[in-house]
Nucleic acid binder design. Structure first.
Length: 619
RNA sequence: GCGCCUGUAGCUCAACGGAUAGAGCGCAUCCCUGCGAAGGAUGAGACCGAGGUUCAAUUCCCCGCAGGCGCACCA
């Protein structure tokens, strides 16, 4: 049960104060999380994971090559292998040639000779132009990689590189009293995926949903409730009624500018602890949070800590006092408090209004300090839209001035979602609600399933439609890099072919179908793995690269690296599927291919898990 | 006005400073009496512009141009 529901329930007792209750419940939940973390830290399973850099064959090879180059020449650069070349690694020899005063090609010949002697895993090293193309012994790579997948299974790709250091990720953070729109989708999905990717790299992640449950917007809503609330409508569909009131407030405010002041006044009262308003506040947050939980359940998102902005209000006076004391902030004549940055590095930053009520700037600072204090994280990541870049720079800078390590804070921003008609706006009614998007996607997927596989039961169709429909939405977002703005169109968001989740899920289902038809997959014997056909080699190379992709995605804070990797993997698998029959093959070929298929399925599953997308044995 | 982000094929997107810039959609032509055609094969098709740094620039720097977003009592 979410915190707001608990608060609302506790308020059955009229002597209970909403914000005191919130403080109590919030702290209890934080305590609970800390206990869960220390329990988890005792689990030995973690130690079975590969340590990091050197744990996987492909990464081990890469590391050896780099070590050799660095030791011998002081350079360790490797180049991306171009599409037409099948090599596993490529060494550009230009800078080495420069230093030695010889031609790149001569340097390449020298390096090729030397590295072949040094690294036993290299089958051959070819020189083309100034490059050395390194071909790893595919058979050995295949054996080692399959061993790795077979033993680690769902952990294949993971490592304990993060050494259980704690990372806080703030994400999703919808506004209470408003339905979630597709605008919130990005933060929710990116944050959830980053959380999984960091965890896969051995970090302990605390995912916080920083709900927008406070501020002047609530004053406005409370005022609207006092004037125009329709009790019957609220009883039936509370969130819709709140949305109507919110929109009405802004419509009325156009002709009556005094409404803005009335909203601010209401918020001031709420923050000061007005019992009646606090009760209303708790109720409307509770119905909103129920709504969010419904959507999180559909998306498969698991929030560790749902704690809104209001939770930090008790800490704000202290934040402001310290800012004033350290001359970080000044109190203006009208009573407002602002941070003025030296050299006008940033515009000044308002912490409190002239009427004394708080602003989100102060709440964000208080929240950051609370997280540092409670979780002692090495990093706090904010998955918030790019329009708040300046705000976070100001927050981080102020935290630095307060004596915290500003380097711990990162704003992983992302581009705006707009509609063909223009910027999304809840007030203007120009918005697509997340629930509608999800339902539409499931419906489209259901039609496709019904058409392709009419023999499935309704229950199966339903499950498949959900996994495929939701997967399509998630993948659509996570397959592109964060910073770009996205113009929402139904067809794009719900694409089910080509580079899409269903494409990956489909490959998984086909792979599983082979495994199933094969009956007993022979017990894995390393020596029985004999990689021969070209397409087998290409596939095994891709399978070997998942750990690198996960590592890269974590360092870059970029889930799309995993998505891009998976798409490339599945393309190789689909070619393999067409070119290399498995069930009709015999002997070692059959056994090898069967293990390749099974390993591919495992990799798809692990990769999609990191994106928050389910796999299905049938679809 | 100042700041941040983005500019790659008709469209939507990839590419640790490295070779012939990759995919998907769309388009054209093929492949199911061989493990599921939500698939595969072939083809046409692109780095916003001008400088600079570098052996090497789509990538880094500078100046433009275009689009988006910010710049105090909203979040």
């Amino acid at each position: 049960m979410n915190i707001y529901r608990k608060i609302a329930d506790a308020m059955q007792d009229p002597s209970v104060s909403a914000f005191v209750e919130e403080e109590k419940i919030g702290l209890a939940e934080v305590k609970h999380i800390k206990e869960a973390i220390s329990q988890k830290e005792k689990q030995e399973e973690f130690l079975d994971l590969p340590e990091g850099e050197d744990a996987y064959p492909f990464l081990t090879y890469k590391h050896s090559i780099r070590d050799f180059l660095r030791g011998e020449y002081g350079f360790d650069e490797l180049a991306e292998v171009p599409k037409g070349v099948d090599a596993d690694f490529a060494i550009p020899c230009f800078s080495i040639a420069m230093i030695k005063g010889i031609k790149p090609q001569e340097a390449a010949i020298e390096i090729a000779e030397a590295i072949k002697k040094e690294c036993a895993f290299i089958e051959r090293a070819e020189v083309t132009g100034g490059y050395v193309n390194i071909y790893v012994d595919a058979k050995a790579l295949g054996q080692e990689t399959i061993v790795s997948v077979e033993t680690l299974k769902e952990h294949y790709g993971a490592s304990r590189a993060g050494k259980r250091a704690k990372v806080v990720i703030e994400y999703s953070s919808p506004n209470a009293a408003k339905p979630m729109s597709v605008g919130h989708l990005r933060s929710t999905i990116i944050g959830e995926s980053l959380k999984k990717i960091y965890e896969a790299q051995g970090f302990t992640v605390i995912g916080i949903d920083h709900v927008g449950d406070f501020g002047t917007q609530f004053g406005k809503l409370l005022y609207a409730i006092s004037q125009w609330k329709d009790d019957d409508a609220f009883a039936k569909e509370p969130v819709k009624e709140m949305l109507r009131l919110y929109v009405k407030f802004h419509e009325e405010a156009k002709s009556d500018p005094t409404l803005e002041d009335k909203g601010r006044e209401m918020f001031q009262k709420l923050e000061a602890g007005d019992a009646k308003l606090a009760r209303q506040w708790a109720d409307l947050c509770a119905v909103s949070a129920d709504d969010f939980e419904k959507i999180y359940a559909m998306l498969g998102v698991k929030i560790d800590l749902l704690l809104g902005e209001s939770f930090y209000q008790s800490r704000i006076p202290d934040v402001i006092a310290r800012c004033l004391e350290k001359n970080i902030a000044v109190k203006n004549e009208d009573g407002s408090v602002a941070v003025n940055f030296a050299d006008e590095e940033f515009p000044s930053f308002l912490l409190a209004k002239k009427d004394g009520s708080s602003l989100y700037a102060a709440r964000d600072i208080a929240a950051a300090e609370f997280r540092l204090e409670q979780f002692d994280p090495v990093k706090i990541i904010y998955v918030v839209g790019g329009e708040q870049t300046l705000h976070f720079r100001q927050v981080f800078k102020t935290l630095g001035l307060l004596g915290h390590d500003a380097g711990k804070f990162t704003h992983d921003s992302f581009g705006l979602v707009s509609l063909p008609e223009g910027k999304m706006s809840t007030r203007e009614g120009r918005v697509i609600f997340l629930e509608d998007l999800i339902n539409e996607s499931i419906e489209r997927a259901r039609k496709i399933v019904a058409e392709k596989n009419p023999e499935l039961t309704d229950a199966e169709k339903k499950e498949i439609a959900e996994a495929v429909g939701i997967g399509a939405i998630i993948y659509n977002d996570l397959s592109q890099s964060r910073e770009k703005n996205i113009q929402f169109t139904w067809d794009r968001a719900l694409s089910m072919e080509g580079n899409s989740a269903p494409y990956l899920q489909y490959a998984y289902a086909r792979a599983m179908s082979i495994v199933k038809k094969a009956g007993d997959v022979p017990v894995f014997v390393k020596e029985h793995i004999v990689i021969e056909a070209e397409q087998e080699q290409k596939l095994v190379r891709m399978i070997a690269r998942l750990p690198e992709a996960v590592q890269h995605a974590q360092v870059a804070g970029a889930p799309h690296i995993v998505a891009t990797y998976l798409n490339a993997l599945v393309q190789e698998f689909s070619r393999f599927y067409n070119e290399c029959p498995v069930l009709t093959a015999e002997g070692a070929t059959r056994e090898t291919r069967l293990h390749l298929v099974r390993a591919t399925a495992q990799v798809i599953k692990n990769g999609l898990f990191l994106l928050g997308i389910r796999t299905l044995d049938r679809m």
